[in-house]
């Protein structure tokens, strides 16, 4: 089952395109890291995925349906600034969730916030940034949606709160098997929890795929300056000194060149390499049927 599918998706704000020709297919159950430089279209993609924005061109589907009406039951969303009703108490926010969502787990939400020492009687505006994030994310999880979309859930949190938020989220994922789409600037933190990567650049998908496969397919090739390793690969980025050359490369086959060594890369290295060369793309080609849908 495909959790999230975009075909020829474009979104224009006045005369600038925030998203353009986005093709994407995220299988159910993945924890997706949505990364990209500021202004790449991450937030716009998320807003389209939860039905807040309508596409200008193409389409986006969540579990095969457009994200409006009844499909909203299957999607939960936490916006970047964690909007909640400031004058409500935490308990009242849980009640709102219960009233507005048929599958809502009010007991679970109450228990979780108790465990996190967020008192139910506290007014939302008195909460710390970390507590506010916990409440917003707890409500989204308690909706028991099949896809949960979190826009920069870790921004403005201290390291301990970051850890707790991610831990809570991963527990929920383990319990329910839901699909998660989360954006972040801190790629190192995503590597531990995410298994799928979507890198957006200038409103387009630059890289998409399972993280394990992406890491398997990329190597840092280091060899003497002035030489080129033999083999079949694509260079994404390179760094030259007087004595040696380093290539960030996507390999089709292992490189067998005794003068060159191939080192494994972290997700951060790969992502940064692609971000530095925004013209290089790498994602599974869109399925023909999807193209047909657009035309």
């Amino acid at each position: 089952m495909i959790a999230l599918e975009a075909a020829g998706l474009g979104k224009r704000y006045r005369d600038t395109w925030a998203l353009r020709e986005v093709f994407l297919s995220v299988p159910q159950g993945r924890v997706v890291a949505l990364v990209g430089p500021n202004g790449a279209g991450k937030s716009t993609l998320m807003r389209v995925a939860v039905g807040l924005s309508r596409p200008t061109t193409g389409r986006l589907r969540v579990f095969g349906e457009e994200p409006y009406g009844e499909t909203l039951e299957r999607v939960a969303y936490v916006a970047q600034d964690k909007p909640l009703y400031d004058e409500f108490t935490v308990g009242e926010m849980i009640r709102v969730g219960e009233r507005l969502n048929p599958r809502f787990d009010a007991k679970g939400a109450t228990r979780r916030l108790n465990d996190l020492n967020v008192p139910g009687r506290a007014r939302v505006h008195t909460l710390s940034g970390g507590q506010r994030a916990q409440v917003a994310i707890t409500l989204a999880v308690a909706k028991r949606a099949d896809l949960i979309v979190l826009d920069e859930p870790l921004a403005s949190l201290d390291p301990l709160a970051r850890h707790e938020v991610m831990e809570g989220l991963m527990m929920a994922v383990a319990d329910t098997g839901m699909t998660v789409l989360l954006s972040s600037h801190v790629i190192a933190e995503l590597e531990e929890v995410c298994d799928h990567l979507v890198l957006l650049s200038r409103g387009r998908v630059q890289v998409a795929g399972d993280i394990e496969e992406i890491l398997q397919g990329h190597r840092l090739l280091v060899g003497p300056a002035g030489t080129v390793p033999g083999g079949s690969y694509e260079v994404i980025g390179e760094h030259r000194t007087e004595r040696q050359t380093s290539l960030l490369a996507r390999l089709s086959d292992p490189v067998h060149d005794p003068r060159w060594t191939a080192r494994e890369l972290s997700l951060q290295d790969v992502v940064l390499g692609y971000m530095r060369s925004p013209d290089v793309t790498h994602y599974p080609p869109p399925v023909l049927a999807e193209r047909g849908d657009v035309a």
Partner: peptide, 14 residues
């Protein structure tokens, strides 16, 4: 103004 439309309109209610 308070961004809460992003909360209210993404619950299971149109």
């Amino acid at each position: 103004e308070r961004g809460t439309h992003q909360f209210a309109w993404t619950q299971s209610v149109s």
